[in-house]
């Protein structure tokens, strides 16, 4: 899926900076100010988006540390009794989530990209082989994979409206769960 924020946001910034903002009425101070802020906010998003996942993991880890300190030092304080009980529940949930947090999205994306390239090269190489049951099976596997992948990609971009309102695409959320 090529249309991801790392690709989309710079195009939005360039459009606003090069084309839209220069055409905004200089006398409309509200529009001028908000236009500049939209660009600045998009720059901030573009800069921080690759780090967002690491940031959230780090934040969770740090809060778990603070919660441990509160539990250790507050155990003897009766005023904290009820709060520490609730805190313990959320600490347990937090540790479970942190233990499941995997690789960073950028690494996942890069691995997908590399695998796509290798798969593509293997498919091109298979086209050099004489027709037979194995090449037929490879073709069938590629076609089956394409069907599933394209349903997901089309559902992801359904809002663009290329296929009209009656395309019958499922919600993408139903296609990406395991």
């Amino acid at each position: 899926m090529e249309l991801r924020p790392s690709f989309q946001i710079p195009a939005l910034i360039k459009s606003l900076t090069d084309v839209v903002l220069p055409a905004v009425d200089p006398a409309n101070k509200l529009a001028q100010e908000q236009g500049q802020l939209v660009v600045a906010m998009l720059h901030l998003m573009a800069q921080r988006l690759p780090l967002q996942y690491h940031y959230d993991c780090h934040e969770l880890k740090q809060f778990l540390g603070l919660a441990d300190s509160l539990a250790a030092h507050g155990a003897a304080l009766p005023e904290l009794g009820e709060s520490l009980a609730a805190l313990a529940t959320d600490v347990e949930a937090g540790r479970a989530v942190l233990s499941r947090a995997g690789v960073a999205p950028a690494e996942l994306e890069a691995t997908n990209l590399a695998l796509r390239t290798s798969v593509g090269a293997a498919i091109s190489a298979s086209a050099m082989a004489a027709d037979g049951p194995d090449t037929k099976a490879i073709n069938a596997a590629v076609m089956a994979h394409a069907q599933e992948m394209l349903l997901r990609e089309r559902a992801w971009l359904a809002m663009q409206g290329w296929e009209g309102p009656n395309a019958g695409l499922p919600a993408v959320e139903t296609l990406i769960g395991d």
Binding site: E2, A11, L12, K14, S15, D18, V19, L150, R154, L157
Partner: peptide, 18 residues
């Protein structure tokens, strides 16, 4: 000169691939 339009258009690739 219109990256945002070209980027938007790239979304039509997936119906074409289908």
């Amino acid at each position: 000169h219109q990256d945002v339009l070209v980027a938007w258009l790239s979304g039509i690739s997936y119906p074409l691939l289908e």
